[in-house]
Amino acid sequence: MKHRSIDILVVVAITIVAVALTFTVTANSVLGRIWTLPLVLVLPGYALTAVMFPRGSLGVLDRLVFSLGLSVAIVILGGLALNWTPFGLRASSWSVLLASITLGACVAALVRRQGRSVIGSARWGVRIPGFTVRQGLLLGLAAVIVCAAIVVSSIGAAQQPFPGFTQLWILPTGGAKTSNTVHLGVSNMELKAMQYRLIVNMDGKVVKVWPSIGLKSNEKWEATLVLPQTEYVQVEALLYRAVAPTTIYRHVTLWHRT
């Protein structure tokens, strides 16, 4: 039985490994968790196909199509079912659901295969031939070129030129928007290091000056400013660049809410 059902045993093994990975490897470890991918896209469908269509009844291509399609359908309908449970659609609930379906179907397939004889290569309907060295080289070269295309495009997209910019913001602190402290921030997205000067006015009077804020590209500066008085109408922050010290570069205002 073992030899005849090696495919099912492999499915069981991958399923168990996938479940173990879900519960032992953190979600941000993609390299560790990527091995759970077949549990979504292939295994449930393959196992169910094995139950419904015993070996020899389908060609490899038909089985592949049914495995992929059934897996997707099972996940969609399973997601709907999970939504109605208190667990919802989470990694753990997905893992348990898909593993249960897959392992249940594997058991059913193993039971169904018992006592059935399968004859030689006709089991799969198709015999997949290998490649000659020359064919292998051509395919290998094609794979390298596809990888090159992906790298070229990804680098091009990441390095696509865009006009640099600086963000300036002002927010009231404390949440109630009635506090006398404000939160200020500058973010340099100019693609080069920048020197800024920041002036804060309260009702037209300067209350704070940061004469030099140096930021490298993609660097951010933030500060909390306690205003000298709680009664004010408007706080204004003006940002200047060192290269154009008299021209307002960015400008934000905060109206006091009473």
Binding site: A18, T22, T26, A27, N28, S29, V30, G32, R33, I34, T36, L37, L39, V40, L41, V72, V75, I76, G78, G79, L80, L89, R90, A91, W94, S95, L98
Partner: peptide, 13 residues
Amino acid sequence: EIVTNALSSLTGL
């Protein structure tokens, strides 16, 4: 989105 959720939840993608 359900299948995407299953994939991203399980794989971390």
